[in-house]
Structures are given as structure tokens and as C-alpha cells.
Nucleic acid binder design. Sequence first.
DNA 1: TATTGCTAGATTGTCGACAATGTGATTGAT
DNA 2: ATCAATCACATTGTCGACAATCTAGCAATA
Lengths: 227, 227
Amino acid sequence: MAKLEFEPIVDTTRRAEIVARLRRAILTGQLEPGQKVNELRISEQMGVSRAPLREAIRELVQEGLLTNIPYAGAYVINVTAKDIADAYGLHHALEDFAIERVWPLRNETFAVELNRRHAQVKQATLALDTTRQIETALSLHSLIYEWADNALLLDTWQRLARRLQMYFALHQQARNEPVPAVDMHEDYVRLLKGADMAAAKRHAREHIDWDFEELLSYAHSLETNRK
Amino acid sequence: MAKLEFEPIVDTTRRAEIVARLRRAILTGQLEPGQKVNELRISEQMGVSRAPLREAIRELVQEGLLTNIPYAGAYVINVTAKDIADAYGLHHALEDFAIERVWPLRNETFAVELNRRHAQVKQATLALDTTRQIETALSLHSLIYEWADNALLLDTWQRLARRLQMYFALHQQARNEPVPAVDMHEDYVRLLKGADMAAAKRHAREHIDWDFEELLSYAHSLETNRK
DNA sequence: TATTGCTAGATTGTCGACAATGTGATTGAT
DNA sequence: ATCAATCACATTGTCGACAATCTAGCAATA
């Protein structure tokens, strides 16, 4: 008899769907930083009442994507250069820790999944689909966190990853250039499959720094625009 | 003219008050792990309607203190030995990072605040007030995160600190002994004021390990109880 | 006996209406 | 003209009621 496994049934509430849509709107920059989330307007657009929408807003506030001011409203978080720098500082710390933890847990399945996600990045890069490029790159980077066997670390990473996704989307949106059509992950993937952990850490650090440098121009424009 | 500073006005909504009360109930173990949060019952006890209570529940779910199953209810998170181990693994990583960042930012005010919080710990220890002992110890440990000048790191720590607070409270509740009436923070405080960062890191690591060892007996009882 | 289908009760999810609060314009006094 | 008081208006916060769903127990059937 074949071993058949079923996936759990998921997301049967309006609230969950609302959260997903709002989150996506924020992470893709459709809802801009600082913009107000008007409950009545959005609930009417989505065809739901304010109750599940408000519950969704509470979740996103806790996720750190919205801020709330009592009796004034919920606003998409603002992005400053310091926010971006903070995110990358934390990214460094988590990445080191994740690599250490994942190192002895790697196996053939890990390598296969690493290749699969890397292929997705390359595909999105070739297709010049920038939104998907960001998503797939973060998915690739998520792998070590998923395999590090630490639920709290994974949760922390996912919160951070959402911030990064937002920053990249805004950055890409700000400069209207196509996108870097090269893929920077060859070394990252190769080193994660290798035997030299120190080298992997070093490269991850450089890789993160490289991404950060990329965002700096956008971060700079934020500061100048504010004046 | 004396420099007078006002504290911000706080918590004008029922929701915020409900969140605070529920969180406290969970972190002190009054709401036990696995216990169901019955909306109707609690809303009647608190004298509020279900709407703000439900919004509060959403926040606590995102905070990681509750889990939610659609149409079934919200439950206080269960605690396993692995959860505790995960928390301490992450604690290690964050502590290292925080010490590095806070090191060049320390000044006289930092030292004064460090002493102040340490005094609170000693006071709670003398008074045999275990709940307050846990709170003040975590407050002491929070200082380096507050001074590290990284909002995301601070946020991450606060989420972790709440888990730790819960674990300690449950641990203390499980064994009915009075409490360790000794204070372990003398060296911690001294090294944080000193010049040897490596030594501070090393000690913090040992200190965290010591706390973890302390929790292991409780973690063990969890596993055996489950059988 | 084991399994399926049904029913009643309890609980969560959602809705529409009302209360509380903030905001900006208007008025009026000095 | 300036400033304070007032007043609509819009928006958020809260409430009570209803709809959708789950669970446990019992009956029916093989």
C-alpha cells in the first residue's frame, strides 16, 4: 500500500485571507510606507466587515509591518536608513548562528533543496521578474533557517525576512532600472554544500554586506527626501 | 527653569489593557500551558465585549504566547524541553551581538542604570519575591539590548525575554522550593562595566548556560509527564 | 462490535450599529 | 489679526446579535 500523506486543511477564515492580502500589499510596496490604512474603505473594497479586518490589522501591527496610534489609525511603517542598517546588523548575527546550527544537520536532501531554490532564483532572474526574484532569493536564504532545527530562530528570521523583502521591493521600485540580471548566489550555494564552515560564514557575511550596499542608495534617498 | 519631562499618555483602549492582563496571566503561569482561552467567559469576567478581547488574542498569537486553531480556539502555548533549548540557543546568539554593539556605546549613564537594575534584583532576592526576581533579572539583562541602538534587535530580545519569563515562572511554580537566595549577577555587572569584551562575552555565555541548566530539571519533568 | 449518520449544544467568526475620540473649520471675543 | 471656544465630520473603538463551524453523544445499520 502506498504511503499517502495529506496536507493539513488551511486558512478557512476571512481574517487569514485579509492578513495575507494586506501583507502582500505592504511587502510589494503597493501600500506605501507611512500610508494610512483606512478601515472602512478597505473593508468595503474587500467586501468584509470591519471586525475581521481590524483583527488582521492587529496581527500585522505585531508583525511589525504596521504601527497603530489609538483613535488615529494604523499606518504602514516608515523606513529609515537606520532601520535598514539595523536589519542588516541583526541579519549578520542570525546568519552566523544559523550556519553553525545547520552545519552538522546538512544531508543530501538539504543539498537538493538548496539547488532547487537556487534554480528558482536563476529562473526569476532570467525572466526579469523582480518581485519573484526577491521572493525566491529570500526563500533560498531561508533554507538554512528551516534546517537549523530551532523554531524560535526560524520565527525570528521570518520576521526579519519580511522587513528585507519590503526594503528590497521599495528599493527596486524607487530606481526604475530593470534589475541586476546576474545571479550572486553561486558561491553561496557552493560553500553551503562544502566542508569549510568558516569560509561559508565569511562569504555569507560578504554577501549580506553586498546586499546592504545595494540598498544604501535607496536609504540615502530617504534621508534627502525627508528634508 | 527646571527641565521637566512628561511620560507619554498610555493605554487608552480596552484592548491594550486586555493584552496586558492576559500577557501577565500567561507569563506568571496563572494561565497554564495548553489551557484554552474561552472568549465568552473571559470577556464576561473582564466586563468587556468579545471584540476587543479577540483583537487582544490576535496580538498575543503574533507575540507567540498563544496559538490559534480556526473555529476551535486560542490556547496557551505548550512548553517542551526543545522549546527551552531553542530559546537558549537564540539567547546565546543575541547576547554576543548585543554585547558587541553596546560595547562602544557604554557611558556613565549606562553604568548607573546597570547598578540601579542590579539593586532591584538584589532587593527582590532578599524579599524572596520570586515573580519580581524574574522580572528584575530580565530587566537587568534587557539593558544591553536597550543600549545597543538597534530597534530590531531590541524587539527580538523582548519577544525572547517573554518566553524566558514564562519558562522561569513555570519552573519556579513546578518546584515549590523558596528560590535561590543568592544573586548571580555580580560578575555580569562588573564585566559589563569593564574593558575586556571577550571576558564579558564569555561570562554571559556561562551565565546563560547556568540559567539553562537550572531550567533543565523542569524541562525534564515535562517530558516524563507527557508519557 | 465497529462504523456511519444525525442532532444538539457550545464556541468561534462575522456583521451592522452605536459610542468615543480626534481633526479641522468656523465663529466670536479681545 | 490672533487666539480660544465650539461644532460638524470622519474615523476608530466597542457592543450585542447572528451565522458558521466544531465536538460530543446517541441512534441506526452492517
